[in-house]
């Protein structure tokens, strides 16, 4: 177990822990928006860390140009997902709110009247 393997093993396990944390949030949290909040953030972090672990492990058998390029390609997936996941979560949250799903509060869902709220914004 040379050091690169140990470091990548640690990174992959930490990434999987964050993926697990996102799933726990997805199951336990009370409301749609809280679930979106947890999966959007925890999964992105989980993917970034585990992909860096995999990219690092790929450099294990000799750092040639090919393996560096392959690792960089893995990192492009991480960067793409870093940009794409928040955008998708935002689009979903906005469309859910626009179509009238009310956020959860302690005493149940709050009655937000969209039109009256927009009228206030216009003023």
């Amino acid at each position: 177990m040379n050091p690169i393997e140990i470091i990548s093993a640690i990174l992959i396990s930490v990434g999987i822990f964050f993926l697990f944390a996102g799933t726990v949030g997805l199951i336990r949290l009370p409301d749609l928006y809280c679930r979106m909040h947890s999966t959007g953030k925890a999964d992105t972090l989980g993917i970034t860390i585990s992909l860096t672990g995999i990219a690092l492990y790929n450099l294990n058998d000799g750092v040639t140009l090919v393996s560096v390029l392959v690792s960089l390609k893995i990192m492009t997936i991480a960067v793409f997902w870093f940009i794409a996941n928040p955008t998708a979560t935002h689009a979903i949250a906005r469309s859910a709110y626009e179509s009238g799903i009310k956020p959860w509060t302690k005493e149940g869902t709050v009655e937000v009247d969209l039109d009256e709220q927009r009228a206030k914004e216009q003023k």
Binding site: L26, T39, I54, N58, I92, S95
Partner: peptide, 26 residues
């Protein structure tokens, strides 16, 4: 309860599948 929950969980599964694919590649 709502179908947006379902799309969120499918999105979450999609995120994990990306990691799973790379691990299988390894």
């Amino acid at each position: 309860p709502t179908d947006v929950d379902r799309i969120i969980s499918v999105g979450a599964i999609g995120t994990k599948t990306v990691v799973l694919l790379l691990l299988i590649g390894l």
